[in-house]
């Protein structure tokens, strides 16, 4: 296993770089797609927005149903449907994130204070305006944190998706392990650690820039 392998030619390394990039883009697209679908669903599942109990509980059981399928299981299903490659990986991440995001977002929405919203209602704001101005500024920081963390988490779980054949660096990693090329495997793991570290660092900066400044009117 030691010392780790250092790739001598670009031709060798480019394959690894492409794998890393693929995992990164799978996680990015999957997280974004999942969040885009989860956001409207999360409003339907929040007690303070959707007052129709039957619909709200129905939507919430829907989230639970989606979360019951682990990302890996979804990947195996999508590989059957779409063949090997990054597409089933993206879909697996997106679908499993719909359940997670919708639950976390709707709880963030429920945890907001009613007071600013009442402030608007009393000055003649419509329901949508109350949500836009009174509620969204309260939940935006939570949504951003959840998105950034889950993106990072999906980069890590994206590796496992590669092992079952859904594209990305995991495929190369499992390939090296099965060929007993431990020095190369270790180098790949090392690169994944660096990638996660960089994402964490960048998301910290992004959070500070976005949450640190306030939402001002244009």
């Amino acid at each position: 296993m030691l010392p780790p392998d250092i790739w001598q030619s670009w031709a060798e390394f480019s394959e690894i770089a492409k794998g890393l990039g693929e995992t990164l883009s799978m996680a990015f697209l999957g997280t974004l797609l999942g969040a885009a679908i989860a956001l409207p669903l999360s409003f339907l599942g929040a007690r303070n927005i959707n007052r129709l109990n039957i619909l709200r509980l129905g939507v919430r059981r829907g989230y639970d149903f989606i979360r019951a399928f682990e990302t890996l299981i979804l990947a195996l299903i999508f590989i059957r449907a779409f063949g090997l490659g990054p597409l089933p990986g993206i879909l697996a991440i997106a679908v499993s994130e719909i359940g997670t995001f919708a639950k976390l977002f709707s709880e963030a929405i429920e945890n907001t204070s009613e007071k600013p919203i009442e402030g608007f209602r009393a000055s003649g704001g419509s329901r949508l305006q109350q949500i836009r101005f009174g509620l969204l500024p309260q939940v935006n920081p939570v949504i951003l944190s959840v998105l950034l963390y889950n993106f990072e988490s999906n980069v890590r779980s994206g590796t496992i998706l590669g092992i079952v054949g859904a594209g990305g660096i995991g495929f190369l990693l499992s390939d090296r392990i099965s060929a007993y090329k431990w020095d190369e495997a270790w180098s790949i793991i090392f690169l994944i650690i660096i990638m996660v570290y960089v994402i964490d660092y960048l998301s910290g900066i992004l959070r500070k820039r976005i949450i640190g400044t306030w939402e001002a009117a244009k």
Binding site: P116, W214, A216
Partner: peptide, 15 residues
Amino acid sequence: FNLVDRLDVLTNVLI
């Protein structure tokens, strides 16, 4: 007061 804490004063008035 029922203002939105995270918005600036001007926006709170413009509401």
